[in-house]
Amino acid sequence: MTMSLLRQIASTPSPTSFHRPQDIEAVRALRAAGLIIALTPSPGGLLSMSGPAEAAQVLALTQQGREELSKGTLQTLASRTRPAPQFVHARR
């Protein structure tokens, strides 16, 4: 999920918003990993004057996020214990 969301963020113009609860949680995870710059609703909606905030807004990918995306080795943040796939390049 994380790699596909990071790809989606990279391929859409910024800023972009996410409204589904699972997407908001994924945005929080990407932000915590330092891969994106994002605004997310506070868990209790304490800062919202008009009721609970229902969207996360991604402002940009960080340099680290672009590097992870270009490597193609980003795994789901919760399952980083598995080794990254190894690629073998044939010489010509």
Rank of each mutant, 00 (worst) to 15 (best):
M1R: 06
M1W: 07
T2N: 13
T2Y: 09
T2P: 02
M3S: 09
S4Q: 15
L6T: 09
R7W: 07
R7S: 13
Q8W: 14
Q8I: 15
I9N: 06
I9C: 09
A10N: 14
A10W: 05
T12K: 11
T12W: 03
T12M: 06
T12Y: 04
S14L: 06
S14R: 09
S14Q: 07
S14A: 09
T16M: 09
T16K: 07
S17H: 02
H19W: 02
R20E: 14
P21Q: 10
Q22D: 14
Q22I: 15
Q22K: 15
Q22W: 13
D23T: 03
D23A: 11
D23Q: 14
D23N: 14
I24P: 03
E25R: 12
A26L: 12
A26P: 08
A26R: 14
V27L: 02
V27R: 01
R28N: 05
A29T: 06
A29Y: 01
A29D: 10
A29V: 05
A29F: 02
L30T: 15
L30A: 13
L30H: 10
L30S: 12
R31A: 12
A33K: 08
G34V: 02
G34D: 01
G34F: 04
G34H: 02
I37W: 11
A38V: 03
L39M: 14
L39P: 04
L39T: 13
T40L: 08
P41H: 00
P41E: 00
P43D: 10
P43S: 11
G44N: 13
G45K: 03
G45N: 04
G45L: 02
L46R: 13
L47V: 00
S48C: 03
M49N: 03
P52D: 05
A53M: 04
A55K: 04
A56N: 04
V58W: 10
V58F: 11
V58N: 12
V58L: 12
L59D: 09
L59T: 10
A60Q: 09
A60R: 08
L61C: 07
L61K: 09
L61H: 07
T62E: 01
Q63I: 08
Q63E: 13
Q64L: 15
G65S: 03
R66M: 11
E67H: 11
E68Y: 01
L69N: 07
S70K: 13
S70H: 13
S70N: 14
K71Y: 05
K71L: 09
G72P: 05
T73S: 01
T73V: 03
L74D: 01
Q75K: 15
Q75C: 10
T76R: 09
L77S: 00
L77E: 01
L77R: 01
A78K: 02
A78E: 05
S79N: 04
R82C: 01
R82M: 04
P83N: 03
P83T: 08
A84L: 00
A84C: 00
P85V: 02
P85N: 01
Q86G: 00
Q86Y: 00
F87Q: 02
V88A: 12
H89A: 14
R91H: 11
R91Q: 11
R92M: 13
